[in-house]
Design a protein around this nucleic acid. Sequence first.
DNA 1: TGAATTATGTGGTCTGACCACTGGTATGGC
DNA 2: GCCATACCAGTGGTCAGACCACATAATTCA
Lengths: 177, 177
Amino acid sequence: MKDSSRPPSKFLAAISQIQEMIKTDRLQCGDKIPSERELSDRLSIGRSSVREALRALELLGLIETRRGEGTFLRDFTDHQLVPLIGTFIFDGEQNKEDVRDVKAILELGCLAILSRKSSFDFNESGSSFQQKIEAADNRLLQNIWMIISDYAGSDPDNERLQELLAAAKQIQYSEGQ
Amino acid sequence: MKDSSRPPSKFLAAISQIQEMIKTDRLQCGDKIPSERELSDRLSIGRSSVREALRALELLGLIETRRGEGTFLRDFTDHQLVPLIGTFIFDGEQNKEDVRDVKAILELGCLAILSRKSSFDFNESGSSFQQKIEAADNRLLQNIWMIISDYAGSDPDNERLQELLAAAKQIQYSEGQ
DNA sequence: TGAATTATGTGGTCTGACCACTGGTATGGC
DNA sequence: GCCATACCAGTGGTCAGACCACATAATTCA
């Protein structure tokens, strides 16, 4: 008879409690979070487990640690996890193709959003997609696009985007079926 | 005079060395990686640091640990990091809007890809987007979409998608500028 | 006053010690 | 020979304590 409800690992518990604490205390980006030793006390969890949690969050780019100073909340914009996940996931075979497609998809979506926003003049807003993405004013989109871009390499003439745009215009789709 | 070339933290060193080891030994998904104590020995790094690295990788869903058995490489398909990043990033205010938009963007892109693939009949391939995404045959797209979907909630009539699709058809864009 | 020193707090790391769990091995009865 | 039991070694999970390296604030002293 195995007790299926084994308590979650302290490591995971620490993570969620830290999140909780951040919410409760309304901590903002740049704010300092309690020291490892204090967290260890307040959560009644060994410092090692607290550290495991913090290191994981750090790798995700959610926090930043500065020796001698403390641990701080961080803006997600600095996407830490990319090079890591990249080597594990993106690398290899024809995944590059997938990455390029997804990048084009995001860019197509970006254009669509801008087009929806009002009569947006594509030829005025600067040529770089970086600027277009920012103009779309969607942080999540921006983050994902930046991450993907790091791995997609360049697509000089936005060939793939043009291709997708053309394809999109052909779509006959109504959810009414 | 600060020594700018301070050695990277053992924690990060451990991660990259573990990655290295995985490549060198050509380990596949499901394979067992050396025990924490053995890693500690082979890398000449304390077990605590090794654990910090492993826990971080675990949180990313790259490895899986089973007490009493060992640590195993894992398929990325199980997207672990979602609930985590979610509460940190997605949550809150009007971000929900952003999430919904990105979801629609991915779906629009999915349709475009299917449309490009050949004359794809949208009304035949099953009604769920899950199936459409799979048909698009792009793992990365699939992963991101699943992640996003967890947070986007449902959009019964694909209202937003329709909206974006309409907007996309209005786009006048040529990279020639 | 102002520079040097000290004290304190923080993250970074290692070690050793347990515990809980798994899987194989040995033991012993049948 | 077979099977159930007990045992043991290996592994992850956790903790506590001890240092070190570093940054900052407080203190001291010229």
